[in-house]
Amino acid sequence: MSRLWAVVALLCALTGSVWAQALPYERPVDRAPQEKSIGGGYKTPDVQKPLPRKGWLEITDVVLLAAAMGVSVWIVVKRRNRRWLMALSATSVAYFGFYREGCVCPIGSIQNVTVALTDGHYHIPMVVTATFFLPLLVAVFYGRAFCGGVCALGSLQELVLIRPVQVPKKLDRALGWLKYVYLLAAIGFAVLPLAQRDFVICRFDPFVSLFRRSGFAHMLALGAAFLVLGMFVGRPYCRYLCPYGGLLAWFSRLSSRGVSITPNKELDCGLCTDACPYGAIEKMRAVRANCLYCARCYEACPREGPLVQLRGQA
């Protein structure tokens, strides 16, 4: 019984002290002088409230993304011209990369979409939703048009690839699995509760610090390392790490109108296979899941020039 009383007394003491500590700290009296009491015709300046990026600019980004993918498809499937594609790549790096500072990009949006699908309280912006789905939709029909000349990360790597070497098939395939591991990890981090949630894709985006020309030194160093490596190994981030690349590869398998190696006019010379830095040409056919829309195969093809001419005449 005495124990019970002790507990009660303790509880009382605890609640008592809590009650005393929990005194709300309030402003005693709000007496900031206003225009009238200051006098002398003083006008209070407006407090600046800078708006976020204008809505129409956000929509412009989505429209540009769609347009760039359209142009990419047109250049690669219809014009079959690598030079034009390089121009598109440079434009994309300039706009989506340096001007938009690498944001919003479909790669990072994987996690936003995952969170939005699993957490009812999460606000996902319309633009992010569109950015995530548009490239997938295009992939269903035309393959990875986004990767060629639209994606700022990919385009940047495409532009630095000057001495491509062939990665051994086995190694290439093994490393290719990494991106699916990364994808699963990204989804895993996204479905965590708010406190532990981590947008790892954005955090470890190797090029965003470069696009923003600020950020952590170690991320800048990582980006630089990827670029140096990318001078010889074709698009290392895209092929082995990009989780969105994994998604695009799945959807591209369904596509029917992607890159095709000189239809009906092959020489079986294999020049295109050697020219593809991504190991995406097997048995003289472009593997849709791996083809990154770089148009190098056309450039290497002895038949390509006449074909374009023929098409132009027809």
Binding site: P28, V29, R31, S37
Partner: peptide, 10 residues
């Protein structure tokens, strides 16, 4: 200042 300066409110 048209009065006392009392930002403290008292």
């Amino acid at each position: 200042t048209n009065g006392f300066l009392i930002p403290n409110g008292v």
